[in-house]
Amino acid sequence: MKVEIDSSTGYLDFVANLHKTMQEQNLILIYQGEVNQDITKVFTSMAERNMEMNEESRKTSRQVYHVMIELLQNICKHTDGPTTDSMSDIGSSKEGIFIVANDDDNYYITSGNVTDSSNIPKVAKMIDQFNVMSKEEIKQEYVKLIKASKLSEKGGAGLGLIDIIKKTGNKIDYYHMDDKEGYSFLVQRSTVTRTSD
């Protein structure tokens, strides 16, 4: 969808429609741009306040908060696309998309970022493997991984995805769009089931 920002009527119309779509889809937060630690802090404290206002259970709020932090920090640490100067069709490094939505049963936290296409098989294999594990298997695998892991230069422990599955008890969905320059836009969605206290 191409929107002419200069043509004020078309643009304002687009904003009004975007607002409508966000309401219809129960999109609580949509963000496209650079993700850093400050953004992570702002989004998570905002989500914490919102969920308190909506009287979400403590368990639901904690899980949404945790998944948001892990996915946002994931974008900060693992985004390794082309620089803004040599931007490809799918975006540049340090940028990502981040969406929080809900329905009656679940919260959906979705993140997308540019990565080197060579990373995709590794991530896909990992998610596929975790997705089919039982609760007990996930727990055992987590213990194995935390003992073996080392904090990377980028500061991650490589435990984010398995920990999300372990805490939420839900699978992670993923999708990737590849360009010709060897970069991919990787989208991941985590689900938090709403529970009452």
Partner: peptide, 12 residues
């Protein structure tokens, strides 16, 4: 009150 996965490694 809360810690992320990178901190969980540091705590260990």
């Amino acid at each position: 009150d809360y810690f992320n996965t990178a901190s969980s490694k540091s705590i260990l």
